[in-house]
Design a protein around this nucleic acid. Structure first.
Lengths: 142, 142
DNA sequence: TCCTTTCCTACTGGAAAAGTATGATTTATG
DNA sequence: CATAAATCATACTTTTCCAGTAGGAAAGGA
């Protein structure tokens, strides 16, 4: 599987922040409840988003998390990347991994490149705002 | 990672058979050597291709494996599927898996669908013959 | 009968995923 | 100032899957 629960949880968290972007700091506990995620596990995941500068936080009694940019300015790729590292369909095309020495003679390598391109095109072009808009249009259609 | 060594080995094996499609039955041992794969491990992998009817075989002294169709009539998707099962970027869009009960309210589900579509488009449209042709054109270009 | 090859099944070591558990630190509030 | 509620940090566990090894049975040609 390409995208694990870490990436999914991170994305759900970010979407939830997007939905409440004008409500000040949001508590992780509340989001975990709404999205039906383990609170402690989500804490761990969010720490990566924090380190990567994707969200800002305050501690203490009335603490919580908040987006830094507008939802339309986050791509889903940049979010998932914080958790999953460089996203690639095959080890062979990881930008952060070692270069395969059989690459030149390998008949499959061009395929991995094509898959990688197709994937990352979707990931780079889709924003958090898109995820929200798609849902709204879904409801209209139904 | 979406595609593991099983799928890759299977694909390399099938490409190798394609390259020698007019040479009768090919020995697994020789292919393992050429592709630098573990012989015993490859045996295991090929057994799936055999069960799925993707290749035919004979045993004994002059045994080996052979394609059943022309290289242009195998999609890479159908090969990889034999080893990896239904290929999906996220658990949520596996055709063979259980349906997620949060699907309706999930903001991410449409994204998984889009990724799935993009992936499978490449996988269904690419044939073994394409892999070979791409390599030939590569050499021309260089 | 031997040798080579495919075929079958069990086992193993290691890595990564998916969380749990524990507690420290910060901060608004009574 | 004490307390409660939140974030932050780390260590541990449990499970699952990947990748490969091992040993031999069955088949077929010489």
């Amino acid at each position: 599987m390409l995208i694990t629960s870490k990436g999914k949880n991170a994305l759900k968290f970010m979407v939830n922040l997007s939905l409440h972007k004008d409500s000040g700091y949001m508590k992780l506990k509340k989001i975990a409840l709404e999205e039906e995620l383990s609170e402690k596990y989500l804490e761990q995941i969010v720490s990566y988003l924090l380190k990567a500068g994707k969200v800002r936080s305050t501690r203490g009694n009335n603490g919580g998390y908040q987006l830094i940019k507008e939802p339309k300015d986050y791509t889903v790729g940049e979010i998932i990347k914080c958790l999953e590292g460089d996203l690639a369909p095959s080890e062979c095309v990881r930008r952060d991994g070692p270069i395969c020495e059989r690459r030149e003679k390998c008949f499959c390598y061009p395929l991995w490149e094509k898959l990688d391109l197709a994937l990352n095109e979707v990931l780079e072009q889709t924003t958090l705002q898109d995820l929200i808009d798609w849902k709204i249009n879904d409801k209209k259609g139904a």
